[in-house]
Design a protein around this nucleic acid. Sequence first.
DNA 1: TTGAAATTCGTTTTT
DNA 2: CGAATTTCAA
Length: 795
Amino acid sequence: MPMGRGNLISLEDFTAAVHDVLGRELNDPQRTCVSHGTDSALMIVAGPGSGKTTVLVLRALRHVLVDGMQPESVMITTFTRKAAGELSSRLLGWGISLVDHFAERARLAADTPKLNWLNRLDINAIQAGTLDSFCQLWLGKTRIVGSPTPVMLEEFAANFVFRRKVFAPAYRTGGQATMDSYLAQYNFERQAPRNQADAGNLSISVNNRLIQDLVDPDGYRGSGAAQQAQAALLQQYREYLQDRQMFDFSLCSERILGGLRSGRLYGQLTPLSALLVDEYQDTNPMQEAIYFELVRQSGCAFAIVGDDDQALYRFRGATVELFTNFQARFAQQLPGAESEMVYLSTNHRSTPEIVRFFNTFATHDPAFVAARVAGKPPIREYNPGRDIPILGLFRDSLDDLSADLSQFLLDVFQGEGRRIPGTGAVLRSQAQGGALGDALLLASSVREYKDSNDGPVERLPIQVRQHLEAAGLGVFNPRGQDLRDILNVQRLLGLVLLCLDPTDRLETTLYLNRDTQRYVPLWRQAAEAFIATNPVPASARSSLRHYVQGWRARRTSSGEDWPNEIPLLDLLYKLIVWIPEFQRDPEHLVYLEAIMRCVVQGAHYSGYGFAILNTAPHDSQSRTSVFYDLLSPIAQTEVEVDEDLMFAVPRNRLGIMTIHQSKGLEYPLVIVDVGSEFKSNHAKQAFKRFPRDSSSTVLMESGMAPFTGVGKLRVARTDIDRTFDDLMRLYYVAFSRAQVGLMLVGLTKNIEYATTVQNIATFWRRDGGWSWRNDNPALKRGAPTRPEMMPLELI
DNA sequence: TTGAAATTCGTTTTT
DNA sequence: CGAATTTCAA
């Protein structure tokens, strides 16, 4: 039922309710963002901890309650599924509180029409998700009547199709030399691709660029023989998938943009009244085009939020310049459309000490200042008092570092607390509800081992894990190791092997790739060793050995006929009865989810849909498909755990995350690994600290620049500067996650007075100067370990 | 400052 | 294992 203007909530009442009902005290710019009209677009430049999600959610609710928009016509997009989930839950929580509040008032005022309207409002219908998820949703609507339903391919499946069906034939029939020399520039250290798979993967990343950057195909093709070959490969791939109505991420967006531009698609979608975009600085040209097209066709209200300093996804085509130049681009592409900009720069998250620290970080290098939005105000401190200095824990060896870091955590979260030198303060977890889960360890990678010639070498996360587990606590780091290397995953997959192919009669007849050949025997061994321990949990009546023997003989324990068809899923659920970790350990739940997701998806791409049949020839064929479609992808590390489906970090465990994953999150105590692996100024790892050449991502941007609309904007800064900018932003995000305590950890080498280890994270300037080194020459001989200017309290 | 010996390194992020 | 970097001694 359309609402008369008089029945809606007034903006004043809405704002008052935000304060009275939700208990949110909005500052002036925040209030401006919520109350800004719907006629002109709104660009919000929001620093860390400035309440951008709050503002976005309130603005969406205001559209429904004050502007009378249908909830299903309001759409909020963000960058990760994790962030989308948070948006949804906050929308729902606040939305319901506000609706209840206004309904109660309407009831008291005997305003029946308003009460009826409020009672029928379905806040849950507000659409929140990633743009990719909406594109997938809309894909079905681009279908031509009578054609088959479009299918989205998993990334590994799509890559497999490209390498096998398109790339390999062209590469082998003479294209190799041309492609190798072209692709080398985008490879690590600009080396020629090592093998065909390597070359294929590089070619895939170029393809994604070509699509996401909206590269002009004629210009690109005309720029060289290799470019022509690459464009032909992409075209072949596109046609191959098109014939089968299949799509990958990029092609799906491309299809949606095409549908919108042709004018056929928008009419099929739910009409749009408002579009709100979070994390706009990570938008790519393709996504910008989709947003602009949606706004053009719907005439909807448009608000974007972002922070140029937190742009982390250049490697995925994200273009921070689309954000910094938003107003000009919007005006140019939607003539007559107006926009306004608001800065949110008061930080409500961190202590003043922490805010000062990351402000200094963002401004200490003039070369980076030039990359930021001109005239951007510094982030202002808000939280008063209870300041703890920024802490630094640096040790001579990795062993010492992980031991002392773990002890520090135990003191703070399990013991009497830790006295902070230079202050009277004691850092100790809250007596009520405080737990190790309040701390977060951030690093550029969370891998627990690195490969070397003499086997795997431990990294910081595994050592911290070991120390904390020894003390009865633990970590939550489900991405620390590949699925194929997790002991209980090995046991589970090994048990599947023993059940399906007990004598490895089948296995030896199959052509398996090298990784699968290596891992299948390992998994079998793990399972056999496990059976030998005779695990008997309370819920299982028979022994595991007995159960597996039943599969071997295809005879049930009660002597009945073996079923004609058993879903693999059933077998897995049965087997985990003997491995209780899969039911109660949070990390194992994530591993299990990844395996189960692969099995469930198998219904779409695996010949037998992962059903195990009992009659020839289907019995061996259905078993074979388990090798090819489940075991082989896991052995090749193509099945990855899904960070967004990760359950909240358990309260008694230390969260370990990549800085990328931590975006948008906040933790009371944040520990940033700025150098647990840096002992010298070695060139091989310079790209993680202090790059010497431009990253391949940046080079690809520049390579495409002449043929894209955003090329000029991007190359306004040099390749090497953009490579440095990315590293600055990474650590800016890391440092600004902390609420109360921020600690930098690493090896002593990084902060010695005379160190040569150049590192962006420890405040080196890209001109080679080091802000933490005192310039007093008198200190040069026998200098103290601790430079005077270092703003860290070393512990 | 120079040459030789000793040490250290080995890519990462994701819809 | 090969290359880059640091350290040591003159």
